[in-house]
Design a protein around this nucleic acid. Structure first.
Lengths: 214, 214, 214, 214
DNA sequence: TATGAATGAGGTTTCATTCAT
DNA sequence: AATGAATGAAACCTCATTCAT
């Protein structure tokens, strides 16, 4: 007797990756709500109860996707921005890595992230991801500021970081929607917006409204 | 004696507004999918068939909300930024009006953008709204640039505008989530990010990546 | 002051005909269930409550259509088959008139009739119509039979009549579905089937199964 | 002790038959539109989603009924009319089998034809069934005609076949409505109408209208 | 481990029909 | 006489989720 090719009884870790692959694909294509567990299971070549057994409910599955893709992104960025480099260089490398990743996974990360923004159940998860993004992308500002001996109010920093992350997310969307666009160039553009603004702020230049009636 | 309030047999225009009010409220609270036509109808104090008769399908109803709230927002901004003012003043007034509106209509904003961004069926509608925002908020940049005799590639301008609008949307989200925050202060912060960056760009300062291997 | 053209306040009889025209049109095009009172009212240029006031519920309205069109058909046939003519001539003239009528109202009578056959609520009405058809189309057989001094069981006659009417209805369907077909020719074909068969029966020729095992 | 009857977790094939049984029953009793998926599911002793999962939409379910009943009918007729028999004998056996089947499955018949005739969505399906009926019931005429060396125009044959099938359907309706009636006798009556007419035609006797004015 | 079978619950949508003006 | 406004009721359909094998 020869042993038949084995497609089943794979170890759990492998199965989970298959499921997540399918889930990311389907969630991206259809959106969170339009995606059905049926389609995901079928696409993963596995039965629905297995999906539930391994990865839990639909929401949990989506969070798992977010998690895996987010982690991959953070890893892609991690090695790029060494702490000993000057601030602008670190920011640039971080942005380049970020847009490079988004460009390479146009139908993965960006779409999932966009989906998550609209749905309340993922608010918590999203806050975490955003926090990590801020840590890498905008946290450098704080570092640089302190290096120059400046103090900025906490809220101020949070808000500016929020703005920068928002701009970055927005360009990531744009990139995901324009298959022919160049990630490197997009990163450069973002850098222009972020750094020239941030650079001014770092040097103590701030803008104030003129005193006007009304 | 004043006439007692009549709750029945109202003219169509009035009922439509009531329905839209309710729809905006419910869509904001629950999100597009979790919102049920039942709840919207009940909240509007009317039966479901009337909603369908006047505003059509659930998607159409959502689009109608988008339309009304978007129009209101644009009107709120329209009068604020007179074309004869200098660029920074116009931008500032536009931003102030925008954040003022968002602060005063947090529900509307949540419906307008946060919900719409995630769902494919509203991509077109949203593009239209964003285009109008760009026209008012970021189109000034183009005007100012040309006034200084500079040329910027179309894509460049689109992408920078996209980034600015993204940053603005992001702060609007932040504002909608922080009921105690001051719209005016938020507008000032955004102005700092946008203008100090934009100001540099206007004066021909641009950032380029240093030549590095890899 | 000149009197404006008057479109309203028409006498009841006129309005009813307008409604029936519209109803026949819509019922034919959409079928009984797919037709909506809204569409009928709109097509008649009148408001729904008027339809209910004049012609009652949807079922009653359909019956009214059936009635009017059926009556018209009977009138069209009535003068054609004079009782003093020989049986085959009477049958032929009746058939010719019938198919002529059906051909001239391809989207009226035949379609309504076809609709009615499938729906239980109209069984009674339909029985009446069929009875009238039998009276004109197949009742002649009885007359001729008696003239030849033959006796046929009641059930026998009913069944044969039923068969002939069924064949006729079937060809009416066929005619309604074939816009290019010639009613006169169709009548001739039906006559061949009906008369050559009926003719044999009239002369006492009947068919019997051979005695076979099983 | 015998194993107690199990009502749950039946294999798909079994459940599908149960569902079709229920559907045929309910469609017959209520008509296509008045029938509700709820009632069908309940009658099949299963939940609605299973019906949708196995048999699809309401229309598809109806078509499935049509198919099953139609196939059964054709099978019932198939073995009855051997090709080597003389034409009248074949026709007679075919009719006897047909009316026998209708008498034994009055529900099936009602679904098969009466319902389907009135509804446009099933026109195609019905045409197919009718075509098959014509093949068996009336196609013999063609065979017999050619055996006698006669030629008949295609349209002529189609129309005559249509008339015969119409007559047969009509008698089937009559049979379905008269529970006490004898299928065999009904078949004999139909045979009289069909064969004595067809017999004449086979021998070259045709009827023509006399030349009359108008 | 793995899955076919099964369902509770809920959502959108449509319509015939009637008030109240 | 005539109608815009209004609704109760019900239908179809889908989906996340779990049992029982």
């Amino acid at each position: 007797m020869s042993t038949p090719p084995t497609f089943k009884r794979l170890p759990r870790a492998v199965r989970e990756q298959q499921m997540l692959d399918a889930a990311v694909k389907v969630f991206s294509r259809r959106g969170f709500h339009a995606a059905s567990m049926d389609e995901i299971a079928e696409d993963a070549g596995i039965s629905k109860p297995m999906v539930y057994a391994y990865l839990g409910t639909k929401e949990e599955l989506f969070v798992a996707c977010l998690h895996r893709e987010g982690t991959r992104m953070m890893q892609a960025i991690a090695g790029a921005a060494a702490p000993e480099l000057p601030a602008d260089e670190r920011l640039w490398r971080g942005l380049r890595a970020f847009f490079g990743f988004v460009g390479a996974h146009r139908d993965g990360w960006a779409v999932l992230y966009r989906q998550a923004r609209g749905e309340q159940p993922f608010a918590g998860e999203l806050a975490g991801m955003r926090a990590r993004l801020v840590e890498v992308v905008a946290g450098m500002l704080d570092h640089a500021l302190r290096a120059e001996g400046r103090e900025v109010g906490e809220t101020d920093l949070e808000v500016v970081a929020y703005a920068l992350v928002g701009a970055t997310e927005s360009l990531a969307d744009w990139l995901a929607d324009h298959p022919e666009a160049d990630p490197e160039k997009t990163a450069t553009r973002m850098m222009n917006v972020a750094w020239l603004g941030a650079g001014q702020l770092l040097h103590g230049v701030t803008w104030h409204p003129r005193v006007t009636p009304g």
